[in-house]
Design a protein around this nucleic acid. Structure first.
Lengths: 326, 326
DNA sequence: ATCATTGGTGCAAGCGGTTGCAGCAACCGG
DNA sequence: CCGGTTGCTGCAACCGCTTGCACCAATGAT
């Protein structure tokens, strides 16, 4: 592998000049600069990112830790983070925590010395652990607010209000909230917003046991729901996947959607628009959230402005899974 | 940030001993080792991955370049690659090429000096470019065979044979193949296998213009298909997304699935099982493919065994979108 | 013509680890 | 009791690049 020193020698300059010719062009005479560039190109030389990172202290990498990639909610966020980096030659260092706090902690410590900053998507660790990490490098959370840390938050309260308003407008007064994942910060926000919206409208909101964001969880929930069926005319599920499960499970039990029961989800994966009936859901600008998170990381590596908190808005998409109750 | 030298001083040993105590425990007296470990832990010390990478020449990172994360085909592969790395403390450095050859090339050169090896998923670059990269670091392709390079290949020929056999058994004799993405190596394999299967059975296979793997492409294709409708009783689409689009578009044009026309796809995303009717498709072990690719990278960084080519098998999943023609 | 700038370049000291080699003490067998 | 292992530890060079500082020639001002 050809090193900078080789290029320098071949070009008849010192390594410092060669270095500057490539990394700080404005510090070098145009003639020298071009000569070095030409020689470097001819030799097929490329700066060694590792060595460079060691001296400058900046790696050009941003770590992104997601709970999983199996939930289509997360890949778009990763894509979003990647975008602002591309222009600067940066890259994404990916970590998948599998929803495990231990794994998440390990990932954070592993990545700490390899990245310029960290984007934690829906982290499961406690506030204290996250704040501790933030003392050592820029940390931005997505879908999770930690006091004192910058964050990108989907504006769930307003989104849930939109959903609830939609259901209430249709005339529903007995609604079930099917939340999850168990223990999630986000979920508590959703639940709170839903409860408030219901209370404000004098409607009843039954909070079901939280479930993981998987289709079979939706199926199981459908079963569970049957016991409550007489009591509710609509279900608000936190995940499109759960909603898909409900869509599959309820008809088998003789409940038609939306005639017998209305369904809505608080996210909007591509698939939910493709079902019959299509699912009413909340569209979330996930890539945008990722881009924003990345910019917040870049901001906070620079000047010491105080942590920002950015909310990204949701859009209600009404499809066929919701209708007026009988 | 506390450095190894600090730990060494605090522990009253040389940095070399401290280094070995942490990285090559067997070379150090148990007593010393534990003492150093204790001091290091007390000081909250962690080895700096960058510095370590510079001296050892190994970063512990594997680069994964995918065309996109928006197609659910790819995230599971990334997850798969990550798994074998986890145990060794390695990580995935992600690159998204957006199906662009230029971007892909840039990514390869960017990542070259930061990773121990590269997994290229469905790369769009030419054989020569890929082979050139492989001279400088271990490269494994997924879903693309390059002579001389190790690869993980979904066994599409056999899968397509399964699909075609299914359609032929049902009695279809006029079948359309809706391929893509345009210019894809994989697609040529599929098309070839499908043509052969049709020819062997004396059936006719119409090859439609290739389309990108998006739902609206499926919709457009549905429209296009109507002109050929009289001539075919079944469509084999290369992507579940395209199939979804067909499922949406055809009924609107008065064609029922599967009564008027059968549909099948050569991959099997979660969603395709959730539609009404459910889509007949080919289930592909994507995570497994990712894991295998990662192991191949690790293998080829070590000893110089000759490049292996691993095929992962597919499973035919029959759902409601296929039936006997009228 | 002289002196202070200024722009361009080179020297050498790092960045934070790893590792070949030498040194040294304790241990072994004879 | 001695020479040879064996097991640990330390010294110092090095990985490939960046950068503060010194140096020098050319430039402009006086």
């Amino acid at each position: 592998m050809v090193r900078l020193a080789d290029v320098a020698r071949a070009a008849g300059v010192s390594t410092s000049t060669a270095s500057r010719a490539l990394s700080r062009p404005e510090m070098v005479a145009p003639k020298t600069r071009e000569h070095v560039a030409r020689v470097a190109a001819a030799m097929g030389f490329q700066l060694n990112a590792t060595a460079r990172a060691l001296t400058t202290g900046r790696t050009g990498l941003v770590g992104v830790i997601v709970p999983t990639l199996a939930n289509p909610f997360f890949p778009p966020i990763v894509t979003g983070v990647q975008q602002p980096l591309t222009e600067a030659g940066g890259n994404v260092l990916l970590g998948v925590s599998d929803h495990s706090e231990d794994r998440e902690r390990d990932l954070v410590t592993q990545l700490e010395s390899r990245v310029d900053g960290l984007v934690l998507v829906a982290p499961v660790s406690g506030d204290a652990a996250l704040r501790a990490a933030a003392e050592r490098l820029p940390v931005v959370t997505v879908d999770r607010a930690v006091p004192g840390l910058p964050a990108v938050l989907v504006d769930i309260p307003s989104g849930v209000r939109q959903l609830m308003a939609h259901l209430l407008d249709l005339g529903h007064r007995r609604i079930a909230y099917l939340g999850g994942p168990p223990g999630s910060w986000m979920d508590r926000q959703r639940e709170k917003a839903a409860l408030k919206a219901a209370a404000d409208a004098g409607a009843r909101l039954t909070v079901l046991d939280p479930v993981p964001p998987q289709i079979d969880a939706g199926l199981a929930a459908a079963e569970h729901l049957l016991r409550h069926e007489a009591e509710v005319t609509a279900v608000l599920a936190y995940s499109s996947y759960v909603l898909l499960g409900l869509l599959m499970g309820l008809p088998g039990a003789g409940l038609r959607v939306p005639e017998d029961i209305s369904l809505a989800a608080s996210d909007d994966l591509t698939v939910i628009g493709m079902t019959r009936p299509g699912g009413t859901a909340l569209q979330v600008p996930l890539e945008e959230a990722g881009r924003t998170a990345c910019r917040l990381v870049q901001e906070s590596s620079g000047n010491g402005t105080r942590p920002r908190r950015v909310r990204v808005p949701t859009t209600l998409v009404v499809r066929e899974s919701t209708a007026a109750p009988r």
